[in-house]
Write a protein that binds this DNA or RNA. Structure first.
Length: 474
RNA sequence: GCACGAGUAGCUCAGUUGGUUAGAGCAGCGGUUUGUGGAACCGAAGGUCGGCAGUUCGAAUCUGCCCUCGUGUACCA
Protein backbone atom coordinates (compact mmCIF):
# COMPACT_ATOMS: atom_id res chain seq x y z
CA UNK A 1 0.00 0.00 0.00
CA UNK A 2 3.01 2.23 -0.26
CA UNK A 3 1.79 5.55 -1.51
CA UNK A 4 3.67 6.69 -4.55
CA UNK A 5 6.05 9.35 -3.46
CA UNK A 6 5.56 12.54 -5.39
CA UNK A 7 8.81 14.19 -6.24
CA UNK A 8 8.07 17.73 -7.18
CA UNK A 9 10.67 19.92 -8.83
CA UNK A 10 11.68 22.96 -6.82
CA UNK A 11 9.80 26.18 -7.43
CA UNK A 12 12.63 28.21 -5.98
CA UNK A 13 15.16 30.13 -8.02
CA UNK A 14 18.77 29.33 -7.20
CA UNK A 15 20.18 31.23 -4.25
CA UNK A 16 21.08 34.76 -5.24
CA UNK A 17 19.16 34.60 -8.53
CA UNK A 18 15.78 36.29 -8.78
CA UNK A 19 12.82 36.82 -11.06
CA UNK A 20 12.36 40.44 -12.03
CA UNK A 21 8.90 41.82 -12.65
CA UNK A 22 7.67 44.45 -15.03
CA UNK A 23 7.75 47.36 -12.60
CA UNK A 24 11.43 46.85 -11.92
CA UNK A 25 12.25 46.20 -15.56
CA UNK A 26 10.54 49.36 -16.75
CA UNK A 27 12.54 51.45 -14.29
CA UNK A 28 15.65 49.64 -15.40
CA UNK A 29 14.88 50.39 -19.04
CA UNK A 30 14.41 54.02 -18.08
CA UNK A 31 17.76 54.08 -16.28
CA UNK A 32 19.48 52.41 -19.22
CA UNK A 33 18.12 54.88 -21.74
CA UNK A 34 19.34 57.76 -19.57
CA UNK A 35 22.77 56.21 -19.23
CA UNK A 36 23.08 55.83 -22.99
CA UNK A 37 22.03 59.40 -23.54
CA UNK A 38 24.63 60.68 -21.10
CA UNK A 39 27.36 58.46 -22.53
CA UNK A 40 26.75 59.66 -26.06
CA UNK A 41 26.79 63.23 -24.83
CA UNK A 42 30.13 62.68 -23.13
CA UNK A 43 31.62 61.01 -26.18
CA UNK A 44 32.03 57.41 -25.10
CA UNK A 45 32.07 54.40 -27.44
CA UNK A 46 29.71 51.48 -26.93
CA UNK A 47 31.41 48.11 -26.43
CA UNK A 48 30.30 44.60 -25.66
CA UNK A 49 32.52 41.71 -24.61
CA UNK A 50 31.50 38.08 -24.03
CA UNK A 51 30.00 36.73 -20.81
CA UNK A 52 32.74 34.14 -20.53
CA UNK A 53 36.45 34.81 -20.56
CA UNK A 54 39.40 32.58 -19.98
CA UNK A 55 39.81 32.50 -16.25
CA UNK A 56 43.45 33.55 -16.31
CA UNK A 57 42.63 36.58 -18.50
CA UNK A 58 40.29 38.14 -15.99
CA UNK A 59 41.29 36.59 -12.69
CA UNK A 60 44.10 36.76 -10.28
CA UNK A 61 43.97 33.00 -9.93
CA UNK A 62 47.11 31.01 -9.77
CA UNK A 63 47.69 28.66 -12.71
CA UNK A 64 48.74 25.81 -10.43
CA UNK A 65 45.38 25.83 -8.71
CA UNK A 66 43.24 22.96 -9.88
CA UNK A 67 40.07 25.01 -9.72
CA UNK A 68 39.56 28.75 -9.88
CA UNK A 69 38.91 30.30 -6.51
CA UNK A 70 35.53 30.86 -5.00
CA UNK A 71 33.71 33.97 -6.12
CA UNK A 72 33.40 33.16 -9.81
CA UNK A 73 31.35 30.65 -11.75
CA UNK A 74 33.71 28.53 -13.78
CA UNK A 75 33.92 25.36 -15.79
CA UNK A 76 36.59 23.53 -17.66
CA UNK A 77 36.28 23.56 -21.45
CA UNK A 78 38.69 21.10 -23.03
CA UNK A 79 41.74 21.92 -20.99
CA UNK A 80 41.13 25.56 -20.23
CA UNK A 81 39.18 27.11 -17.41
CA UNK A 82 36.45 29.53 -18.41
CA UNK A 83 34.74 31.92 -16.01
CA UNK A 84 31.66 34.07 -16.19
CA UNK A 85 32.83 37.66 -15.88
CA UNK A 86 32.52 39.13 -12.39
CA UNK A 87 32.86 42.74 -13.55
CA UNK A 88 33.40 44.72 -16.75
CA UNK A 89 36.78 46.17 -15.90
CA UNK A 90 38.78 42.97 -16.23
CA UNK A 91 37.30 42.19 -19.68
CA UNK A 92 38.09 45.77 -20.71
CA UNK A 93 41.71 45.31 -19.73
CA UNK A 94 41.79 42.11 -21.78
CA UNK A 95 40.14 43.87 -24.74
CA UNK A 96 42.54 46.80 -24.62
CA UNK A 97 45.58 44.53 -24.41
CA UNK A 98 44.32 42.56 -27.41
CA UNK A 99 43.39 45.56 -29.55
CA UNK A 100 45.99 48.01 -28.35
CA UNK A 101 47.21 49.00 -31.81
CA UNK A 102 43.77 49.75 -33.21
CA UNK A 103 42.12 51.72 -30.43
CA UNK A 104 42.37 55.50 -30.21
CA UNK A 105 44.48 56.85 -27.38
CA UNK A 106 43.00 57.75 -25.07
CA UNK A 107 40.19 55.22 -25.49
CA UNK A 108 36.79 55.99 -23.95
CA UNK A 109 34.26 53.20 -23.85
CA UNK A 110 31.10 52.34 -21.97
CA UNK A 111 29.52 48.97 -21.47
CA UNK A 112 26.33 47.54 -20.02
CA UNK A 113 26.19 43.91 -19.12
CA UNK A 114 25.24 41.19 -16.73
CA UNK A 115 27.95 40.04 -14.37
CA UNK A 116 27.97 37.05 -12.01
CA UNK A 117 29.49 36.55 -8.60
CA UNK A 118 29.50 33.26 -6.78
CA UNK A 119 29.22 34.62 -3.27
CA UNK A 120 26.70 35.01 -0.49
CA UNK A 121 23.84 37.30 -1.50
CA UNK A 122 22.81 40.16 0.81
CA UNK A 123 20.12 42.85 0.88
CA UNK A 124 19.97 44.26 -2.65
CA UNK A 125 22.93 42.10 -3.61
CA UNK A 126 22.51 39.15 -5.94
CA UNK A 127 24.70 36.65 -7.70
CA UNK A 128 23.59 37.90 -11.11
CA UNK A 129 23.22 41.58 -11.81
CA UNK A 130 23.44 44.23 -14.47
CA UNK A 131 26.40 46.52 -14.31
CA UNK A 132 27.32 49.69 -16.12
CA UNK A 133 30.91 50.84 -16.69
CA UNK A 134 32.55 53.87 -18.27
CA UNK A 135 36.32 53.99 -18.53
CA UNK A 136 39.15 56.13 -19.83
CA UNK A 137 42.10 54.10 -21.05
CA UNK A 138 45.51 55.61 -21.63
CA UNK A 139 45.42 58.94 -19.83
CA UNK A 140 46.79 60.22 -16.57
CA UNK A 141 44.98 63.51 -16.86
CA UNK A 142 42.88 64.23 -13.74
CA UNK A 143 40.33 65.70 -16.14
CA UNK A 144 39.34 62.11 -16.91
CA UNK A 145 38.66 61.33 -13.23
CA UNK A 146 36.74 64.55 -12.84
CA UNK A 147 34.59 63.86 -15.90
CA UNK A 148 33.69 60.42 -14.60
CA UNK A 149 32.37 61.91 -11.37
CA UNK A 150 30.45 64.57 -13.22
CA UNK A 151 28.88 62.03 -15.55
CA UNK A 152 28.07 59.81 -12.59
CA UNK A 153 26.30 62.72 -10.92
CA UNK A 154 24.48 63.64 -14.10
CA UNK A 155 23.35 60.06 -14.61
CA UNK A 156 21.97 59.75 -11.09
CA UNK A 157 20.30 63.09 -11.43
CA UNK A 158 18.69 62.19 -14.75
CA UNK A 159 17.45 58.94 -13.32
CA UNK A 160 15.30 60.83 -10.87
CA UNK A 161 17.45 61.54 -7.84
CA UNK A 162 17.37 65.07 -6.52
CA UNK A 163 20.66 66.79 -5.87
CA UNK A 164 20.15 66.48 -2.12
CA UNK A 165 19.58 62.73 -2.36
CA UNK A 166 23.05 61.62 -3.33
CA UNK A 167 26.66 62.52 -2.83
CA UNK A 168 29.87 61.52 -4.55
CA UNK A 169 32.75 61.25 -2.15
CA UNK A 170 36.24 61.52 -3.52
CA UNK A 171 39.60 60.63 -2.13
CA UNK A 172 43.03 59.55 -3.23
CA UNK A 173 44.77 56.40 -2.10
CA UNK A 174 48.09 58.17 -2.10
CA UNK A 175 46.98 60.48 0.70
CA UNK A 176 46.07 57.72 3.10
CA UNK A 177 49.12 55.62 2.25
CA UNK A 178 51.17 58.78 2.77
CA UNK A 179 49.70 59.08 6.24
CA UNK A 180 50.56 55.44 6.96
CA UNK A 181 54.13 56.10 5.79
CA UNK A 182 54.34 59.08 8.12
CA UNK A 183 53.11 56.97 11.03
CA UNK A 184 55.65 54.32 10.12
CA UNK A 185 53.09 51.60 9.55
CA UNK A 186 55.01 49.39 7.19
CA UNK A 187 53.62 45.91 7.72
CA UNK A 188 51.45 45.15 4.70
CA UNK A 189 48.78 43.33 6.72
CA UNK A 190 48.52 46.23 9.13
CA UNK A 191 48.25 48.71 6.28
CA UNK A 192 45.38 46.78 4.71
CA UNK A 193 43.65 46.36 8.05
CA UNK A 194 44.00 50.09 8.69
CA UNK A 195 42.54 50.93 5.29
CA UNK A 196 39.53 48.71 5.93
CA UNK A 197 39.01 50.08 9.42
CA UNK A 198 38.95 53.69 8.24
CA UNK A 199 36.67 52.79 5.34
CA UNK A 200 34.05 51.71 7.91
CA UNK A 201 34.13 54.96 9.87
CA UNK A 202 30.78 56.25 8.73
CA UNK A 203 29.07 53.04 9.70
CA UNK A 204 30.76 52.09 12.97
CA UNK A 205 31.94 55.43 14.31
CA UNK A 206 35.22 56.60 15.76
CA UNK A 207 35.19 54.10 18.62
CA UNK A 208 34.58 51.25 16.21
CA UNK A 209 37.49 52.36 14.07
CA UNK A 210 39.70 52.63 17.15
CA UNK A 211 38.87 49.04 18.10
CA UNK A 212 39.63 47.81 14.61
CA UNK A 213 42.94 49.69 14.56
CA UNK A 214 43.76 48.14 17.92
CA UNK A 215 42.80 44.72 19.16
CA UNK A 216 39.53 44.14 17.36
CA UNK A 217 35.80 44.68 17.52
CA UNK A 218 32.68 42.71 18.37
CA UNK A 219 29.67 43.74 16.30
CA UNK A 220 26.06 43.71 17.39
CA UNK A 221 25.48 40.16 16.20
CA UNK A 222 28.27 39.07 18.51
CA UNK A 223 30.78 38.38 15.79
CA UNK A 224 34.39 39.35 16.45
CA UNK A 225 36.67 40.97 13.89
CA UNK A 226 40.39 40.96 14.52
CA UNK A 227 42.06 44.38 14.56
CA UNK A 228 45.21 45.83 13.03
CA UNK A 229 47.07 45.88 16.38
CA UNK A 230 48.68 49.27 15.84
CA UNK A 231 50.36 51.08 18.70
CA UNK A 232 48.73 53.98 20.51
CA UNK A 233 50.66 56.70 18.71
CA UNK A 234 49.69 55.27 15.33
CA UNK A 235 46.04 54.92 16.30
CA UNK A 236 45.94 58.48 17.62
CA UNK A 237 47.47 59.74 14.38
CA UNK A 238 44.81 58.06 12.26
CA UNK A 239 42.00 59.13 14.58
CA UNK A 240 43.18 62.73 14.41
CA UNK A 241 43.24 62.52 10.62
CA UNK A 242 39.65 61.23 10.56
CA UNK A 243 38.40 63.89 12.98
CA UNK A 244 39.98 66.68 11.00
CA UNK A 245 38.74 65.44 7.67
CA UNK A 246 35.46 63.63 8.11
CA UNK A 247 32.34 64.92 6.43
CA UNK A 248 30.26 63.87 9.41
CA UNK A 249 30.38 64.69 13.10
CA UNK A 250 31.44 62.06 15.60
CA UNK A 251 28.00 60.61 16.07
CA UNK A 252 27.73 60.40 12.28
CA UNK A 253 24.34 62.04 12.64
CA UNK A 254 25.02 65.36 11.07
CA UNK A 255 26.51 65.90 7.71
CA UNK A 256 28.88 68.83 8.07
CA UNK A 257 27.87 70.15 4.70
CA UNK A 258 29.64 70.16 1.40
CA UNK A 259 33.30 70.14 2.19
CA UNK A 260 35.35 72.11 -0.26
CA UNK A 261 38.70 70.66 -1.07
CA UNK A 262 40.96 72.47 1.37
CA UNK A 263 43.41 70.19 3.12
CA UNK A 264 44.46 71.62 6.41
CA UNK A 265 47.89 73.17 6.66
CA UNK A 266 48.85 70.88 9.49
CA UNK A 267 48.78 67.91 7.13
CA UNK A 268 50.98 69.48 4.45
CA UNK A 269 54.26 67.71 3.71
CA UNK A 270 53.25 64.69 5.70
CA UNK A 271 55.13 62.54 3.23
CA UNK A 272 56.02 62.78 -0.48
CA UNK A 273 53.27 60.33 -1.36
CA UNK A 274 50.70 62.34 0.57
CA UNK A 275 51.70 65.52 -1.26
CA UNK A 276 51.42 63.78 -4.61
CA UNK A 277 47.88 62.66 -3.76
CA UNK A 278 46.97 66.17 -2.70
CA UNK A 279 48.33 67.60 -5.96
CA UNK A 280 46.22 65.16 -7.97
CA UNK A 281 43.13 66.02 -5.96
CA UNK A 282 43.85 69.70 -6.55
CA UNK A 283 43.74 69.13 -10.29
CA UNK A 284 40.60 67.05 -9.94
CA UNK A 285 38.61 69.54 -7.86
CA UNK A 286 39.76 72.44 -10.00
CA UNK A 287 37.59 70.88 -12.70
CA UNK A 288 34.60 69.61 -10.73
CA UNK A 289 34.25 73.07 -9.17
CA UNK A 290 33.34 74.29 -12.64
CA UNK A 291 30.53 71.79 -12.98
CA UNK A 292 26.91 72.13 -11.96
CA UNK A 293 27.44 69.18 -9.61
CA UNK A 294 30.20 70.87 -7.63
CA UNK A 295 28.17 70.57 -4.42
CA UNK A 296 27.60 66.85 -4.90
CA UNK A 297 31.24 65.97 -5.54
CA UNK A 298 33.04 66.32 -2.22
CA UNK A 299 36.41 65.60 -0.72
CA UNK A 300 36.18 62.72 1.72
CA UNK A 301 39.54 61.49 3.00
CA UNK A 302 37.98 58.64 4.96
CA UNK A 303 36.84 57.01 1.73
CA UNK A 304 39.24 54.16 0.98
CA UNK A 305 37.63 51.59 -1.24
CA UNK A 306 38.40 47.93 -0.71
CA UNK A 307 39.35 47.16 -4.29
CA UNK A 308 42.97 46.19 -4.54
CA UNK A 309 43.96 47.57 -7.92
CA UNK A 310 43.18 51.24 -7.36
CA UNK A 311 46.27 53.39 -7.41
CA UNK A 312 45.12 56.99 -7.05
CA UNK A 313 41.84 58.87 -7.10
CA UNK A 314 38.88 56.86 -5.82
CA UNK A 315 35.24 57.83 -5.58
CA UNK A 316 31.93 56.42 -4.52
CA UNK A 317 28.29 57.52 -4.90
CA UNK A 318 26.07 57.16 -1.85
CA UNK A 319 22.39 57.74 -1.35
CA UNK A 320 21.42 60.15 1.39
CA UNK A 321 18.02 58.61 2.11
CA UNK A 322 17.16 55.43 3.99
CA UNK A 323 16.42 52.32 1.98
CA UNK A 324 14.07 49.61 3.20
CA UNK A 325 13.70 45.97 2.26
CA UNK A 326 10.47 44.22 1.20
CA UNK A 327 9.40 43.82 4.79
CA UNK A 328 9.76 47.53 5.42
CA UNK A 329 12.90 47.14 7.47
CA UNK A 330 15.69 49.64 7.03
CA UNK A 331 18.84 48.08 5.68
CA UNK A 332 22.49 48.99 5.27
CA UNK A 333 22.50 49.87 1.62
CA UNK A 334 26.06 50.78 0.75
CA UNK A 335 27.05 52.63 -2.37
CA UNK A 336 25.20 52.73 -5.68
CA UNK A 337 28.38 53.08 -7.64
CA UNK A 338 31.96 54.07 -7.61
CA UNK A 339 35.29 53.88 -9.28
CA UNK A 340 38.78 55.15 -9.45
CA UNK A 341 42.13 55.15 -11.11
CA UNK A 342 43.89 51.89 -11.85
CA UNK A 343 47.15 52.54 -13.61
CA UNK A 344 48.63 49.04 -13.48
CA UNK A 345 45.86 46.72 -14.62
CA UNK A 346 46.80 46.41 -18.28
CA UNK A 347 50.53 45.99 -17.89
CA UNK A 348 50.07 42.39 -16.79
CA UNK A 349 49.25 41.62 -20.43
CA UNK A 350 52.59 43.15 -21.45
CA UNK A 351 51.27 46.48 -22.72
CA UNK A 352 53.22 48.71 -20.42
CA UNK A 353 52.14 52.02 -19.01
CA UNK A 354 48.48 52.21 -19.86
CA UNK A 355 46.98 54.33 -17.08
CA UNK A 356 43.20 53.95 -16.70
CA UNK A 357 40.35 55.33 -14.69
CA UNK A 358 36.77 54.13 -14.61
CA UNK A 359 33.41 54.21 -12.96
CA UNK A 360 30.94 51.39 -12.52
CA UNK A 361 27.67 50.80 -10.83
CA UNK A 362 25.09 48.10 -10.36
CA UNK A 363 21.84 49.08 -12.02
CA UNK A 364 19.75 46.84 -9.79
CA UNK A 365 20.70 48.67 -6.64
CA UNK A 366 19.87 52.02 -8.18
CA UNK A 367 16.56 50.62 -9.45
CA UNK A 368 15.84 49.12 -6.03
CA UNK A 369 16.31 52.53 -4.45
CA UNK A 370 14.32 54.36 -7.14
CA UNK A 371 11.36 52.01 -6.64
CA UNK A 372 11.07 53.27 -3.08
CA UNK A 373 10.66 56.88 -4.03
CA UNK A 374 6.96 57.59 -3.63
CA UNK A 375 6.86 60.17 -6.36
CA UNK A 376 8.62 57.92 -8.82
CA UNK A 377 6.18 56.62 -11.41
CA UNK A 378 6.89 54.98 -14.70
CA UNK A 379 3.95 54.76 -17.03
CA UNK A 380 3.22 51.27 -18.20
CA UNK A 381 0.85 50.73 -21.08
CA UNK A 382 -1.91 48.15 -20.67
CA UNK A 383 -4.10 46.89 -23.49
CA UNK A 384 -7.71 47.74 -24.16
CA UNK A 385 -9.65 44.47 -23.92
CA UNK A 386 -12.24 43.52 -26.53
CA UNK A 387 -14.74 41.16 -24.93
CA UNK A 388 -15.98 38.02 -26.63
CA UNK A 389 -19.76 37.40 -26.71
CA UNK A 390 -20.01 34.81 -29.40
CA UNK A 391 -17.38 33.07 -31.48
CA UNK A 392 -19.55 33.57 -34.59
CA UNK A 393 -18.78 37.28 -34.40
CA UNK A 394 -15.02 36.81 -34.18
CA UNK A 395 -14.52 38.64 -37.48
CA UNK A 396 -16.17 41.73 -36.01
CA UNK A 397 -13.85 41.61 -33.01
CA UNK A 398 -10.84 41.33 -35.24
CA UNK A 399 -12.10 44.26 -37.27
CA UNK A 400 -12.03 46.41 -34.16
CA UNK A 401 -8.69 44.99 -33.04
CA UNK A 402 -7.05 45.82 -36.37
CA UNK A 403 -8.50 49.31 -36.27
CA UNK A 404 -7.05 49.93 -32.81
CA UNK A 405 -3.68 48.38 -33.48
CA UNK A 406 -3.25 50.28 -36.73
CA UNK A 407 -3.88 53.42 -34.67
CA UNK A 408 -1.09 52.24 -32.37
CA UNK A 409 -3.37 51.55 -29.44
CA UNK A 410 -2.36 48.63 -27.24
CA UNK A 411 -5.27 46.21 -27.49
CA UNK A 412 -6.29 42.59 -27.48
CA UNK A 413 -9.27 40.31 -27.87
CA UNK A 414 -9.86 38.52 -24.59
CA UNK A 415 -7.45 35.63 -24.93
CA UNK A 416 -9.20 33.08 -22.74
CA UNK A 417 -12.52 31.33 -22.58
CA UNK A 418 -15.31 32.23 -20.28
CA UNK A 419 -18.22 34.37 -19.40
CA UNK A 420 -18.28 38.11 -19.52
CA UNK A 421 -17.80 38.33 -15.79
CA UNK A 422 -14.57 36.42 -16.08
CA UNK A 423 -13.47 38.66 -18.90
CA UNK A 424 -14.14 41.74 -16.80
CA UNK A 425 -12.17 40.27 -13.91
CA UNK A 426 -9.31 39.62 -16.26
CA UNK A 427 -9.37 43.18 -17.62
CA UNK A 428 -9.45 44.54 -14.11
CA UNK A 429 -6.56 42.35 -13.04
CA UNK A 430 -4.26 43.43 -15.84
CA UNK A 431 -5.25 47.07 -15.20
CA UNK A 432 -6.69 47.57 -18.62
CA UNK A 433 -7.91 51.15 -19.10
CA UNK A 434 -11.18 50.09 -20.74
CA UNK A 435 -13.07 47.23 -22.28
CA UNK A 436 -15.09 47.11 -25.47
CA UNK A 437 -18.48 45.40 -25.72
CA UNK A 438 -19.43 44.50 -29.26
CA UNK A 439 -22.21 41.96 -29.07
CA UNK A 440 -25.20 41.29 -31.29
CA UNK A 441 -27.09 44.38 -30.07
CA UNK A 442 -24.20 46.73 -30.79
CA UNK A 443 -23.35 45.15 -34.12
CA UNK A 444 -26.94 45.65 -35.26
CA UNK A 445 -26.83 49.32 -34.35
CA UNK A 446 -23.33 49.89 -35.74
CA UNK A 447 -22.18 50.97 -32.31
CA UNK A 448 -19.75 49.77 -29.69
CA UNK A 449 -20.02 50.07 -25.94
CA UNK A 450 -16.92 51.40 -24.23
CA UNK A 451 -16.53 50.89 -20.50
CA UNK A 452 -13.95 52.92 -18.62
CA UNK A 453 -12.57 50.62 -15.95
CA UNK A 454 -11.33 53.36 -13.72
CA UNK A 455 -14.56 55.32 -13.47
CA UNK A 456 -17.04 52.59 -14.39
CA UNK A 457 -18.50 54.95 -16.96
CA UNK A 458 -20.01 53.29 -19.99
CA UNK A 459 -20.95 54.92 -23.25
CA UNK A 460 -22.30 53.80 -26.59
CA UNK A 461 -20.50 55.30 -29.55
CA UNK A 462 -20.32 54.98 -33.30
CA UNK A 463 -17.46 52.81 -34.49
CA UNK A 464 -15.91 55.75 -36.34
CA UNK A 465 -15.44 57.57 -33.05
CA UNK A 466 -13.96 54.63 -31.19
CA UNK A 467 -10.28 55.53 -31.59
CA UNK A 468 -10.88 59.11 -30.49
CA UNK A 469 -12.91 58.10 -27.46
CA UNK A 470 -10.28 55.59 -26.35
CA UNK A 471 -7.54 58.19 -26.72
CA UNK A 472 -9.46 60.31 -24.21
CA UNK A 473 -9.30 57.51 -21.69
CA UNK A 474 -5.74 56.22 -22.03
C1' G B 1 33.14 32.38 5.96
C1' C B 2 31.19 33.79 11.10
C1' A B 3 26.88 35.18 14.24
C1' C B 4 21.69 35.68 15.38
C1' G B 5 16.63 34.78 13.70
C1' A B 6 13.02 32.31 10.60
C1' G B 7 10.77 28.16 7.40
C1' U B 8 3.04 25.40 8.55
C1' A B 9 -2.05 26.07 1.88
C1' G B 10 -0.31 30.43 -3.86
C1' C B 11 0.44 34.81 0.03
C1' U B 12 0.28 36.56 5.37
C1' C B 13 0.13 33.98 9.68
C1' A B 14 -2.31 30.97 14.29
C1' G B 15 -1.38 26.15 16.29
C1' U B 16 -1.62 25.30 24.31
C1' U B 17 3.04 21.55 28.91
C1' G B 18 4.17 16.37 22.62
C1' G B 19 -2.18 13.76 22.14
C1' U B 20 -7.88 12.06 17.43
C1' U B 21 -8.97 13.95 11.01
C1' A B 22 -3.29 20.63 11.31
C1' G B 23 -6.67 25.98 11.34
C1' A B 24 -7.86 31.32 9.82
C1' G B 25 -7.75 35.64 6.60
C1' C B 26 -6.64 36.99 1.68
C1' A B 27 -5.95 35.10 -3.31
C1' G B 28 -7.68 31.23 -6.72
C1' C B 29 -11.93 27.99 -8.43
C1' G B 30 -17.47 27.19 -8.82
C1' G B 31 -22.20 29.46 -7.85
C1' U B 32 -26.01 33.53 -6.44
C1' U B 33 -26.17 36.75 -12.10
C1' U B 34 -25.88 31.82 -19.52
C1' G B 35 -24.32 40.79 -21.35
C1' U B 36 -20.75 43.81 -17.01
C1' G B 37 -14.71 44.07 -12.97
C1' G B 38 -12.92 46.42 -8.39
C1' A B 39 -18.59 45.21 -3.06
C1' A B 40 -21.55 41.12 -0.62
C1' C B 41 -23.22 36.11 0.29
C1' C B 42 -22.93 30.60 -0.41
C1' G B 43 -19.99 26.24 -1.70
C1' A B 44 -16.11 23.04 -2.81
C1' A B 45 -11.01 22.54 -3.24
C1' G B 46 -6.17 23.29 -1.72
C1' G B 47 -0.78 20.78 3.11
C1' U B 48 5.43 15.25 1.93
C1' C B 49 4.00 21.25 8.65
C1' G B 50 11.73 22.99 4.50
C1' G B 51 14.49 17.85 4.17
C1' C B 52 16.74 13.55 6.49
C1' A B 53 17.62 10.87 10.83
C1' G B 54 16.67 10.20 16.14
C1' U B 55 13.78 10.24 21.07
C1' U B 56 8.60 8.57 22.05
C1' C B 57 2.92 4.38 22.48
C1' G B 58 2.37 9.08 19.77
C1' A B 59 6.23 14.76 16.77
C1' A B 60 4.22 20.78 13.21
C1' U B 61 5.79 20.76 18.57
C1' C B 62 11.74 17.74 21.62
C1' U B 63 17.19 16.51 19.79
C1' G B 64 20.99 16.28 15.85
C1' C B 65 22.61 17.14 10.89
C1' C B 66 21.52 19.39 6.22
C1' C B 67 18.94 22.93 2.87
C1' U B 68 16.65 27.64 1.98
C1' C B 69 15.38 32.65 3.33
C1' G B 70 16.18 37.11 6.37
C1' U B 71 19.47 40.43 9.12
C1' G B 72 24.29 41.81 10.80
C1' U B 73 29.43 41.07 10.09
C1' A B 74 33.70 39.64 7.14
C1' C B 75 35.27 39.65 2.11
C1' C B 76 34.46 42.09 -2.44
C1' A B 77 38.16 41.35 -8.40
Amino acid sequence: MAKEKKIKPSKETPSGFIDRKEKELLIRDFVISNIKEVMIKYGFQYLETPSFEYTDSIGKFLPDKDRPGEGVFSFKDENKWLSLRYDLTAPLARYVAKNYNEIPKPFKRYQLGTVWRNEKPGPGRFREFLQFDADYVGTKNPQADAELCILLAETLSKCGLDKNEFIIRVSNRKCFFGLLDFLEIKNENQRIAAVRAVDKYERIGIEGVKSLLGKGRTDKSGDFTKGAELNKKQIDGIVAYIKENSLYDEERENFKGSARFAPLAVWDDLSPLYSEGIRELGGFFGLTELSEYKDQIVYSPTLVRGIEYYTGTTFEANLLFKVKNQKGKEIEFGSVGGGGRYDNLINRFGNLDVPCTGVSFGLDRLVFALMQKKDFKIKSVKPVVICIFDQKNIENYFGILNKLRSSNISSEIYPGEGKLKKQMEYANKIQSPCVIFYGDDEIKKGEVKLRNLKTGEELSIKIENLVNEIRKII
